[in-house]
Computed example of a mutant assay.
Amino acid sequence: VTLQILLTAKKILNPSKPIHMFGLGLPQFFSLAVASGCDLMDSAAYILFAREKRYFTLSTGTKKLEEIEEFPCHCPVCTQYTPSELRELEEPSQIELLARHNLYLSFSELRTIRQAIKEGNLWELVEQRIRNHPSLVDAAQVLYKESPYIERFEKVYKSHGRMFSSIESLQRPIIQRYLLRIQNNYRVPEGVDFLIIVPELDVRGKSSPSVKEWINLIDNNMVISRERLHVVLLSPVFGIIPLELSETFPLAQYERSNLMTSKHAQEHCLKMISPFFKSHGKSYNKCAIIVPEEYTNQFDEVVKFTEDHPINEIKSYIEKETKINCTQFKHIQEIFEFFKITESL
């Protein structure tokens, strides 16, 4: 409810007007509040929890002093005292020292947030923090539902690549932006008749040894004119990535975990490709999907292609939604004859 009120206020107020939140609570919540539009804040949680002999951590929320064997923090309090030494002090001293630690940690988190904003990594920080408690994961859904609104304020370019490490990463505004632009701003190259979809592998775009080899075979084929072939990558994060855009930000500057091939991620990928085909599907007479049995990774090792990659699921979707004649192939060389049949009909 707090985040919903904050986001509603942010939409109504002039963006130049700062919003102050009273009683923000534990440090784990700070980054989520800032991402939702909070500019200023205060909190008495540091002393309130200290009175209950509770010690702030960023990884597990609060801990009772009596349960702690080692202090994970390096603040002046935690480096001067051990938990057992702190427990031996009089209660007022315990409360004061715990309050100091809690305050140190709170200010440390604020500095971390400011640095994340400067580096353009606030979303990554939010995703780290919400994993500390299920209620934070639930609260974050309020923020993610507002991605279309937040996207308007997201920077077009950032100096660092993006890290997509969890399912929550798939709900970021930067993905919403790509979805809108590929649907509304992108144009299929003139003269194209055939679509070739290749999987994005362990490294992005043409940096992959196998993708580079496939592109070379396509470019030098003697069967179908290259101008009639449109090559796109299928990314578990961004969906359809036209090859000509594959070296632009953020499509070439991101890392993803293997979670991006989970069932949830596959559903996300199908959602991402839908606008592309609704806007551009009529440009293609046929579609060839490359689903290799194996590929060469960035270490020049030949490895088995994962069955969980969303490219395994898109054939039926494309045929159902677009009526394009679509076939899967294991090898690039096979697709040219598939396209050539159209020439002779």
Rank of each mutant, 00 (worst) to 15 (best):
V203R: 09
N132E: 10
F22K: 09
H268R: 04
P76R: 02
K330C: 08
E127V: 01
N14W: 02
F336Q: 03
S166Y: 09
S207H: 14
L233F: 06
R100D: 14
I95S: 00
W214R: 01
A45I: 10
Q94I: 11
L3C: 05
T60C: 07
Y55H: 04
L251E: 02
L217W: 02
S207M: 15
E66S: 12
W214I: 06
K330N: 10
G120L: 06
E88S: 14
N325S: 15
Y55D: 05
Q128C: 06
P209H: 01
V156F: 13
F22Y: 07
E247Q: 13
Q176I: 13
Q115R: 14
S257H: 01
S235C: 06
T322H: 09
H160N: 13
A99L: 15
A265T: 01
E227C: 14
K212M: 10
P242T: 01
P275S: 02
K323I: 09
E154Y: 07
F338V: 05
Q328P: 08
L58V: 06
P148L: 04
T322D: 03
K63M: 05
L251M: 05
P18E: 00
E96F: 14
I311G: 01
L243M: 05
E313R: 13
L217C: 09
A116Y: 02
D300V: 12
H74F: 14
K11C: 06
T112V: 03
P134A: 03
H20R: 03
I290V: 05
I130D: 07
I241G: 02
I335V: 08
I341T: 15
F277L: 06
N121A: 07
C38T: 03
I12V: 12
P134I: 02
